[in-house]
């Protein structure tokens, strides 16, 4: 049963004196796909990193299952336990310099999952992304599309309650995009909450249940995908959807 929910309250982040995220308030509904859209520098990746406990907020808090994430209050143990219920796939596929198979099993190994169970899950995940035949290849010799599929399978194998995806299909060929989007849909079916950063509003339309529009580090609009694209509340949202510059 996947019960982890994420709520952010008055979340802000300052990098080198520059405010990247400003007073964001959001609740991510369990089991839904949320698309974070917005122009470059709007704070999407920063928000993702804060929610995934990779960075510490300058102000505000990330509440996981109505429990403080622990980084602000300083409980590392709590933070590791919470982090192990989440996973993230980065914009740039970051695979370890070892075989595809060892990459896939990494998350299970650090959790101390037994070998038989790990191999069963690993095989299933690799088959899902269509790369079982490449399991013995060095992961760094794969194409970008294959690498991103391995990265996704590596996150999928640990069956996270929340999956963060930072532009997972940018620069990929259409074939790889289709495979990755199908996996994202499958993960949603298994109850995983998905938070997807994307520059592609068509992808947001195809996949997301909810859309969050960020601009200048602030949440400008948040709503159901249909309402967001058909009845946007804000003038800037409408301009962004229509492909106009909103800086």
């Amino acid at each position: 049963m996947k019960t982890l929910s994420i709520e952010i309250k008055d979340l802000s982040k300052v990098y080198n004196g520059q405010s990247v995220l400003r007073g964001c308030n959001l609740t991510f509904d369990r089991g839904l796909i949320h698309a974070l859209i917005g122009p470059n520098g709007s704070g999407k990746t920063t928000l993702l990193r804060l929610c995934n406990l990779l960075d510490v907020p300058s102000n505000g808090e990330v509440l996981l299952k109505n429990l403080d994430s622990g980084l602000n209050s300083g409980s590392l143990k709590n933070s590791i336990e919470l982090r192990r219920r989440m996973a993230m796939v980065f914009h740039r596929p970051s695979l370890f310099n070892t075989t595809v198979w060892k990459n896939i099993l990494y998350g299970l190994k650090v959790r101390g999952i037994n070998r038989k169970e790990s191999e069963r899950k690993g095989k299933k995940a690799l088959e899902m992304v269509g790369l079982w035949k490449l399991k013995d290849r060095n992961a760094l010799t794969l194409s970008v599309g294959e690498s991103q599929r391995v990265a996704l399978a590596r996150a999928m194998v640990i069956d996270p309650e929340v999956l963060f995806l930072d532009e997972p299909t940018s620069n990929l060929d259409p074939g790889s995009v289709v495979i990755i989007e199908e996996i994202i849909k499958d993960m949603k079916k298994s109850g995983t909450t998905i938070i997807l950063v994307t520059q592609n509003i068509f992808q947001a339309k195809r996949l997301a249940d909810k859309v969050i529009f960020l601009l200048d580090g602030m949440v400008v609009e948040y709503g159901n995908t249909f309402d967001f694209f058909n009845n946007p509340k804000g003038e800037r949202t409408m301009r962004f959807i229509n492909g106009e510059m909103v800086y």
Partner: peptide, 10 residues
């Protein structure tokens, strides 16, 4: 990103 990846994988 290697450090971040390991961290996000638990």
């Amino acid at each position: 990103i290697i450090r971040d990846t390991a961290r996000t994988l638990g």
